[in-house]
């Protein structure tokens, strides 16, 4: 046996091959790991680049930057309050408007609609999520803002605002505190914080409703059927069984929508009016962080450019925190499921 050369060579070759394979495996593993680390790097890099770009703004304005509403390119003095306020208020409005609608859609699609209708309707709603944000912006600018200023805004200023056309304050404006200020406006056009909030709400509704619908489906049928067997109505099962069971994931889905709204640029830029002023009225134009950057970055130099970078850093931090909480809450339900 040992006189045959093949018998000696074969184990050697096999040994070499397994060593070669092990080396290739190691290299392959490293290549994959580096690619995966690039994901982290892009997140850290985005935060680092904007922080670095905004360093001179942070250095010259300090903490005052966050609370100052000045925006004066002539004297090179900037504060972040107006765009931060606009970003938070428009996103908050969007979530307030989108949550009940999304909840209704998710409820309808998971508990109410006949089976044959569920797939087409949910695909249509998801289609809404696929429309590019610039289209929302254009539609908002050319169609919705004129409609808003012709039909919705006069009603709001006359019945809720503190500056109605005929000068007579409505009962609501006289008796409910702050509401007159919120809806009083002498700005004649449709672009406003509320308009941006509404367009954003339309944009984030499909995101929130698809998360809600997905988590509603994770509720064990056993739980629902027990409640039905005790005589509960569909609404009682939804509100008393499904919602409590999925609470953390539902909140996670809402925060996910909030994260989208905070970072949205195009849909907002077109309908916000881009005014660097702080107004208590929702019907006055404003600015958001993203719209300010989109409008001013190309022409900005020196400290203004640095300020816009600093604003981008703030936006990144705000959305990061919101999305972090969202994902943590969504993960709680996944844990409960044991996946």
């Amino acid at each position: 046996m040992s006189s045959q050369p093949g018998a000696i060579v074969a184990p050697l070759a096999a040994d070499q091959r397994s060593r070669r394979d092990a080396r290739h495996d190691r290299q392959f593993r490293w290549l994959l790991k580096i690619c995966a680390l690039l994901v982290l790097a892009s997140l850290v890099g985005a935060a680092g680049a904007t922080l670095w770009g905004g360093r001179s703004a942070f250095a010259s304005f300090g903490w005052h930057f966050l609370v100052s509403s000045t925006w004066d390119p002539g004297n090179d003095v900037y504060g972040a309050l107006v765009p931060v306020y606009g970003t938070i208020v428009t996103s908050f409005l969007a979530v307030m408007l989108a949550v009940p609608i999304s909840f209704g859609i998710a409820l309808y699609l998971s508990e109410v609609a006949p089976r044959w209708l569920r797939t087409p309707v949910s695909s249509a709603i998801e289609l809404l999520a696929g429309i590019p944000s610039i289209i929302y912006g254009m539609w908002g600018l050319f169609i919705f803002a004129p409609f808003f200023s012709a039909h919705i805004k006069p009603w709001l200023t006359n019945y809720l605002g503190d500056s109605p056309d005929d000068g007579k304050l409505s009962w609501v404006a006289q008796h409910v505190p702050f509401i007159g200020k919120l809806f009083g406006s002498s700005y004649p056009f449709g672009a406003s914080i509320l308009t941006a909030g509404i367009v954003l709400a339309i944009m984030i509704t499909p995101f929130i409703s698809s998360v809600m619908r997905e988590v509603f489906q994770t509720v064990p049928t056993r739980l629902k059927e027990s409640a039905y067997a005790l005589g509960s109505s569909t609404w009682e099962v939804s509100w008393d069984i499904v919602v409590p069971y999925t609470r953390s994931a539902v909140i996670g889905g809402i925060l996910l929508g909030l994260g989208r709204a905070l970072g949205e640029t195009m849909a907002v830029t077109f309908v916000l009016g881009n005014a660097m002023q702080l107004s208590p009225s929702l019907l006055d134009p404003g600015s958001s962080i993203a719209s300010t950057i989109a409008n001013q970055f190309s022409e900005a130099v020196g400290l203004q450019k640095s300020t816009l970078m600093a604003l981008a850093f703030l936006l990144f931090v705000i959305t990061f925190i919101v999305l972090l909480i969202a994902r943590l809450m969504l993960r709680q339900l996944a844990r409960k499921e044991g996946t």
Binding site: L43, A49, T50, R260, T265, A290, I293, A312, L315, F320
Partner: peptide
């Protein structure tokens, strides 16, 4: 998952910088 919904304008500024 967080990067999935990160604001795209910030990504633009990141690439502008690098």
């Amino acid at each position: 998952d967080i990067l999935l919904s990160a604001p795209s304008i910030v990504m633009g500024l990141f690439v502008y910088t690098i």
